[in-house]
């Protein structure tokens, strides 16, 4: 599902964020990407979401080589991908419903289909009945869940999250992680970057450890 082959990423300012990263994720895998801040976790996720392109090496997502993808094909690619951000990236001039509906509207879902899927997504993240609320009136944890609902509403094949619990207290963090687990149980491939080792200590998942732009550990691996 996601495959990195000897990937290097050097930014224009000369900083090398990734130096020869290789790993493979099968469909339905649940993987934590750990490591200290500045290790290249965000860069790795950005390469998957095609926000950045690799300087060297190959990034394959769903058998598509992201490094060679022309610009006009990026939107369709991203529509198959759910992304959750640490800072939610919600639109504060729109209701919760409109935020979650955005990827569905883009993908051209009918009005009825959109309403159905938005309700289902909000239901899954425990925000049923908050459709008309403004995101700003919600707590940080609730806003993060709106962000997750938006990512899963179009039923993506892959869900990636960059420090989704970065701003949350431990209790809320566990709730959020459980959410991701549930999505994984229905077949979504999940990759979560986090530096919060305490939080994932008890979770039986594969962990990729990134240090200084290189994979320094790959534990709990279930599949070849």
């Amino acid at each position: 599902m996601i495959r990195f082959e000897n990937v290097f990423k050097r930014y224009p300012n000369g900083r090398e964020a990734l130096s020869g990263v290789s790993f493979n994720m099968e469909r339905g895998d649940f993987v934590f990407l750990t490591g200290p801040s500045g290790a290249g976790k965000s860069t790795l996720l950005k390469l998957i979401a095609l926000i950045e392109r690799p300087t060297r090496g190959t990034v394959l997502v769903n058998n598509q080589n992201t490094g060679r993808m022309p610009r006009r094909k990026i939107p369709a690619f991203r529509q198959r991908l759910g992304v959750v951000f640490q800072d939610h990236k919600l639109l504060y001039d729109r209701s919760v419903f409109d935020n979650v509906a955005l990827p569905l509207v883009i993908a051209g879902a009918s009005r009825r289909e959109t309403e159905k899927r938005v309700r289902a997504a909000l239901d899954q993240v425990g925000l049923r009945g908050r459709e008309t609320h403004a995101p700003i009136t919600l707590s940080t944890g609730e806003q993060q869940r709106v962000g997750i609902a938006r990512a899963v509403a179009p039923r993506p094949d892959v869900l990636i999250a960059d420090e989704p619990t970065g701003n949350l207290d431990p209790e809320l963090s566990i709730e959020i992680m459980e959410l991701f687990t549930r999505f994984n149980e229905v077949g979504v491939t999940v990759l979560i970057a986090t530096h919060d080792l305490d939080l994932i200590r008890h979770m039986q998942c594969r962990r990729l450890k990134l240090v200084a732009g290189q994979i320094s550990g790959d534990v709990g691996r279930v599949k070849g």
Binding site: R78, I106, R150
Partner: peptide, 16 residues
């Protein structure tokens, strides 16, 4: 710009 950025992130085409 935030709205545009978010829309691009969730797969909005240039035309959209």
């Amino acid at each position: 710009s935030t709205e545009i950025e978010v829309t691009k992130l969730v797969g909005g085409t240039d035309g959209f």
